[in-house]
Write a protein that binds this DNA or RNA. Structure first.
Lengths: 194, 194
DNA sequence: CATTCTCGAAAACGGTCGTTCTCCTACGGT
DNA sequence: ACCGTAGGAGAACGACCGTTTTCGAGAATG
């Protein structure tokens, strides 16, 4: 009879898949490596996720949700919208400093599989849209013009890839500096227009 | 007897490799697809590039050189350093608008193979360093503080990935707007400090 | 105790990939 | 005309990957 652990095994598989897919790239990781890392036998693995594609999709969806949740959890501890905007870049700095950081998992999977798999491309796009919406809400709360959102997104995205390739978390600081400048300029424009 | 075409075949191979590697990702493209696309028989292909790894390396190195050359060629037609800085983002807009644009080939290959191949990781890093140096020279020529370089790099990198995933060239315009603001702020700071 | 069922370990299968090898054609020199 | 060679087309090879199947050990059931 099936034990209590159907959910446990799913988590163990996803934990192993995330570490491997994110750390080495998706195509470089075989199902056998996930079996070994998770300790879940191949049979159960395929009972839980009927194909590698569905496992990749589940990996991306879980990471998407957790990433945005963690970001919001950090940023929302600050009081003013302006502080929350700048806190996003502090959170990026912490993320970039984590051992094993290798850039944005969605940019990476888009580059690797976006041309081959519409699903992967869609998930990456949805993830970036969600991030953009989060920033847009902060910008609106700060009474800043909507176009500031687009600029902040670029700084954050640029910081992710630059931090990944250069191997240092410093781009987060540079992005925060630039964000502060752009925020001030946006506010000044609102005042001028009034 | 060997014909005049040893260089011709190398170009044909690299042309096919670039289109396929960039368009579909490196691991998704087999040597057979490159053979078909280039029309160069497998035997000659391996005489020219003794392994797929060396072909990948040659693809990245040629793209690196041409990318920076094209950028500089466009930007350097402008007179003032400030105009040249902003022209970088105009050039990005043209690039993003090309049919088949799929983001930065170096970010993509880094995400796909950076963890597996030190060579790929090094080439991506060298490419981004070269881009940064180009911007740093423009910033210095504009008498702007050096830290402006870091901010402009983030805008450009962010625009590349955002344009790729969103599928529109608009991020280049947003990046240019932000760059103009940051440039003004940087100049203002220099004046204030004086 | 015998039987059935469950489940994990690993072999097996079909396909693909990078790379090499075979064969056949066509041409150059004598 | 003959032979030697170069070169191209594609078969072949070994490795690996995603997925399925086999097999045997052990628990549950009557």
């Amino acid at each position: 009879m099936s034990e209590v652990e159907p959910e446990r095994t799913e988590q163990r598989i996803l934990d192993a898949a995330e570490e491997l897919f994110y750390g080495r790239g998706i195509q470089s990781v075989g199902m056998d490596a996930i079996r070994t890392a998770s300790g879940v036998p191949l049979k159960r693995l395929y009972q839980t996720f009927p194909s590698k594609d569905t496992l990749v999709e589940a990996y991306l969806r879980r990471r998407d949700a957790r990433w945005l949740r963690d970001l919001a959890q950090y940023s929302d501890t600050y009081d003013s919208p302006e502080q929350r905007i700048l806190a996003v870049f502090d959170w990026l700095f912490l993320w970039f400093s984590e051992q094993g950081f290798r850039g944005c998992g969605f940019i990476n999977s888009f580059g690797e599989l976006g041309a081959t798999s519409q699903t992967v491309a869609d998930i990456a796009k949805a993830h970036k849209d969600a991030f953009r919406r989060y920033l847009a809400d902060l910008v609106a709360a700060a009474d800043a013009p909507a176009w500031l959102t687009d600029q902040l997104v670029l700084l954050a995205e640029g910081a992710m890839t630059t931090a990944a390739i250069s191997g240092t978390p410093e781009p987060a600081r540079h992005a925060k500096d630039a964000a502060r400048t752009l925020l001030r300029a946006a506010h000044a424009e609102v005042v001028t227009a009034a």
